[in-house]
Simulated assay, not measured.
Amino acid sequence: MRRTSPIFDFRHEGNVLRASIAATLTVAAVGIILGLASGSFSIMFEGIYAIVDAGMSLLSLVVVNLITAYAQSTDLPPRLRERFTMGFWHLEPIVLAMNGLLLMGVAVYALFNAVSSLLEGGRDLQFGLAILYAAITLMICVTVATIETRANRHLGSEFIRLDVRSWIMSGCIAAALLFAFAIGLTVQGTQYQWLSPYIDPAALALICLVVIPLPISSVRRALSDILLVTPVDLKQRVDEIAARFVTEQGFLTYRAYVAKVGRSHNIEVYFILKPGGPPRAMAEWDALRDEIGEAIGGDGPHQWLTIVFTEDPEWA
């Protein structure tokens, strides 16, 4: 039976991102070469956009490897583990926010250039080469977005989800350029040929107006994680479970602290006991912690759960 090469094994997040980086660099190289050859700034924009995206995908891959190595306690240098005793989950929302903001910044810059070109009378370009680029890029974008979407059904990675969105954006850009360049080629030698110089900057301006707001939702979610905004649904679940154990065990009350940082859930629950209660063996407290942890659920490598019992509210 023929075995699949590990490089093309898309059951792992890192392999999916590596394939995406390779495809992105291909699109960038083709875009820059054909953009220069055809004189199209919109093609150059997509090439530069792809380079920025590839750089952020590479950074995402590094973060994914660090998170996985820490969570699985493998392949992580002892010195690095000593310096980051709380893990690397906090890097994920930082990278996601940087990714979205950089892509938006590139699009805003390109929009200003497109408007400036329109005001200056546009630019001439070779529509044949431009159409060739748009067709090649569209096929690559559709292929990669489809593969990543199928892989992420099982992986559930926010990095891959953002990367899929980026490929969809690139595909939409390529489709719009293909349509615009086809119109430009059609009007050659007709009474509408005067429109030709405006087609490239007009297409770029419209594309930028569509692209700029697309990463906003990802940036907003990443900022929520960076600022440790408490997820309402997770906090509600922890509150319900903690309140139930307070009633069952006869505790005074509890205090719960919940945050989502990237793919990790940080949960701290402090149960405040009645002063002077009957003593319990440590094994009983540990068994109770296990029971509470099982009730909260999500006992995986990406959950940081702390359960404390104390009579002093100051410790909570």
Rank of each mutant, 00 (worst) to 15 (best):
T4E: 12
I7F: 06
F8S: 03
D9S: 01
F10P: 01
H12L: 07
E13R: 03
G14K: 10
G14W: 05
V16C: 14
V16M: 06
L17Y: 03
R18Y: 11
R18F: 11
A22K: 06
T24M: 05
A28N: 03
A29C: 02
V30C: 05
G31M: 05
I32A: 03
A37F: 10
A37T: 09
G39M: 03
S40A: 02
S42G: 14
E46T: 14
G47F: 12
G47R: 12
I48K: 09
A50H: 12
I51K: 07
I51V: 15
D53E: 10
G55E: 10
G55L: 09
L59E: 08
L59S: 14
N65S: 13
T68V: 11
Q72R: 15
L76C: 09
P77T: 08
P78K: 10
P78I: 09
L80Q: 12
T85P: 13
W89M: 11
W89Q: 13
E92N: 09
P93N: 09
I94V: 15
L103N: 04
M104L: 13
A107V: 08
V108R: 06
A110K: 11
F112I: 12
A114F: 08
G121K: 00
G128W: 09
L129Y: 08
A130I: 01
L132F: 15
L132N: 05
L132W: 13
Y133W: 14
I136A: 10
I140P: 03
C141F: 05
C141Q: 03
V142M: 06
V144N: 01
E148Q: 15
H154G: 05
H154D: 10
E158L: 10
I160C: 05
I160R: 07
I160L: 11
R161L: 14
V164S: 11
V164A: 09
S166A: 14
W167F: 15
M169R: 07
C172R: 05
I173T: 11
A176M: 09
F181L: 00
A182I: 07
G189Y: 00
Q193N: 04
W194R: 00
Y198D: 01
D200S: 01
A202D: 03
L204H: 04
L206C: 10
L206D: 07
L214I: 14
V219I: 11
R221H: 02
R221Q: 04
A222M: 01
L223Q: 04
S224N: 13
D225A: 00
L227P: 03
T230N: 00
V232P: 00
V232M: 00
D239P: 06
A242M: 05
T247F: 11
Q249A: 13
G250C: 06
G250K: 08
F251V: 08
Y254M: 09
A256Q: 02
Y257G: 04
H265L: 01
H265T: 00
Y270R: 09
L273E: 13
L273I: 12
L273G: 04
P275W: 07
G277D: 10
P279T: 13
A281Y: 06
M282E: 12
A283F: 05
A283Q: 14
L288Y: 04
R289K: 04
R289L: 02
G293W: 07
E294Y: 06
D299K: 15
Q303C: 04
W304I: 04
W304S: 01
L305H: 01
E314S: 13
E314V: 14
W315N: 08
A316L: 03
